[in-house]
Design a protein around this nucleic acid. Structure first.
Lengths: 352, 352
DNA sequence: GGTGATTCTACAATCGTTTCCAGAAACCTT
DNA sequence: AAGGTTTCTGGAAACGATTGTAGAATCACC
């Protein structure tokens, strides 16, 4: 039989004290006599009482929960971020509400609104777009701290939010530099949506060419972070009048598509064509030949995001109106990326 | 400036009506005049009022949220389940609280308790163990519907919970059957923890041998669902006096370890050694040669779990005590698995 | 033993909703 | 025009906790 949820009233009655005393005992208030503590705890034990966090939240004006908006949790990249974030949040007693925005900016804003109605204490956002007006206005007037994950927003919204960013530029610069040093000149870069990570990667590629004083013979293809785009882009790069001799895929979904196309054409990775991907997955490590990647610690990304949020939350104070205000300015954390050279990169075939 | 959260009182005052009327308008109560509706909606609009779900939950005795306990969200298998579940829940207006139990049964039960304090309406559980006493007693007296994901519990706990199961046995039977038909006799099966999915896989393997009237020359290695175990088990299988000629890895983590070992030994998959894995990931599809798998629709697994839970929630009614009771008996859904033969399976080398 | 300080406890208001109940207004019906 | 429905609205009591305030009890001290 499902036990009737016992509430504080019953505990108080059983112990023969007032509810306020029970509350004080449980919340560790200093002014409580040992005798009182004993009686209350005994009653709590015998009833198996567990406080109702809903009621606590309502009264305390904090839910100890944060909302996490992610475009697609089934993407290994994002799920690792989520893992890092959840672990850090849980360690501090926060729970995580998670929702998928399916790469739809409209869902981003809808979910943010929903989370606000649920009165989450803060938001962790890996947005589907960096320029959605709805999301923008929602964020610029948000009452809770916000941390953006690998996203950059302009204007008021960007100014109010903290963010954790990856230094894609450096990693990409080294990756393309490696390819150029191997003799490649026509590098094909497959990117996702026009967001910070795409811009930075392009800049990194340009840096590499510029640093060597080389003509910019690269080609960039933008699209969605999906296998289909990876495949189509690979086709385009290989069918061009001057085909790319090396391809850099800006993410594991793109890599999947690229590899599918490469295999269908019977091309040998690391011989006929060089290949680099972004973000490590089991495929890049175990593929034969192993695939070079621009690596980053995604779990740390999530962890840092959570910690940034937590530090904002801990710095909150109630103002005279009784509403919370953070005393802390938004922060930006930049995490490193690292290029890992692997046999998928070799001198171009025509140079042999 | 963060806008003061407006509450229902302010809406009522602005509209010049009672709070109860505002509530009725917003919750679509039938007995409300068009004029009233207009006035209230105007006030709601002008204040940008959004109801506080916390207060609603407290009063309505339902949070429209469910808790999802998963051992490791960064595992592609689990994140796909989570995606399927979240999408289905969201479609019905439910939010998902997600937590990682890190394969620790103690965390399982701690999180269940936490979710209960948060008063989730239901639980979706992919437990770390099928026999933890704490979890057991928590579940047998739970007040909310529960759906187990690919887990089987005995006793009262199992009787009260619904579950979504995969038919691992059939898929494994076909996989091993395929290997046997290719001429393999010494099949090595690498399993995870002793839970239903492991037991079923073993049964499936036995079925295959039995159906062909063959001597059971297989070897089974149980352990954790981790790459390390996959690797160690592979070592053991290959170093045995009579080495396995085919290896079946019971999950993608195990496959990672197995492949690492295989590569280090310079063995050719699909030639020196046949290989089968469980659950499709990009690696199994794109590896050269492609790796045969026992496949299942993990996203559907999550979706079915959510739908099972939702159907229980919708069937709830309040009894005379004012507490909810489900009128519906727990259900069990069995989802198919399918063996996909691929070039990673070939006749054993010594048979050539 | 009276005064004040100190420790503890209880009452009651509050958080933001929903919903029961009673009553007002309107509309039929005869 | 009285009586009976039906429709609508407002007041107030929940939901289950926390917390400010005030008062009771204890104690020390002179």
């Amino acid at each position: 039989m499902a036990p009737q949820r016992t509430n504080m009233r019953e505990v108080a009655d059983l112990a023969g004290v007032a509810m306020s005393s029970v509350s004080r005992v449980l919340s560790g208030h200093p002014d409580v006599s040992p005798a009182m503590r004993q009686r209350v705890m005994a009653a709590v034990e015998s009833l198996g009482y567990q406080p109702d966090m809903l009621a606590q939240s309502l009264r305390r004006k904090e839910t100890r929960s944060v909302g996490f908006v992610v475009s697609d949790i089934s993407n290994p990249l994002q799920s690792q971020i989520a893992l890092g974030a959840e672990t850090a949040l849980r360690a501090k007693g926060y729970s995580m509400l998670l929702t998928n925005s399916e790469n739809d900016p409209a869902l981003d804003s809808a979910h943010i609104r929903l989370f606000q109605q649920r009165r989450v204490d803060g938001l962790l956002l890996s947005l589907a777009a960096e320029d959605d007006p709805q999301t923008f206005s929602l964020l610029s007037s948000a009452a809770t701290p916000i941390v953006l994950i690998d996203r950059e927003l302009r204007g008021e919204a960007g100014r109010r939010a903290s963010s954790v960013l990856s230094d894609h530029r450096t990693g990409m610069r080294d990756a393309v530099g490696h390819l150029l040093d191997l003799g490649h000149r026509r590098v094909g870069l497959i990117l996702g949506q026009p967001m910070r990570f795409s811009r930075e990667r392009l800049e990194g590629l340009k840096d590499a060419y510029a640093a060597r004083g080389l003509q910019p013979l690269y080609t960039v293809v933008e699209g969605q972070l999906e296998p289909r785009h990876g495949r189509a882009a690979t086709q385009a790069l290989l069918d061009a009048a001057e085909p790319a001799t090396a391809i850099v895929a800006g993410g594991n979904q793109l890599l999947n598509g690229a590899l599918a196309e490469i295999q269908q054409r019977g091309l040998r990775v690391g011989a006929d064509l060089s290949l680099v991907s972004c973000d490590e997955i089991s495929l890049t490590q175990l593929y034969q030949p192993p695939i070079a990647v621009v690596r980053r610690d995604t779990r740390a990304l999530g962890r840092h995001a959570a910690e940034l949020l937590l530090s904002q939350l801990e710095a909150q104070e109630e103002d005279d109106q009784g509403r919370k205000r953070t005393t802390r300015e938004p922060e930006v954390v930049l995490l490193p990326t690292e290029f890992v050279a692997r046999p998928s990169c070799a001198p171009p075939a025509d140079a042999a």
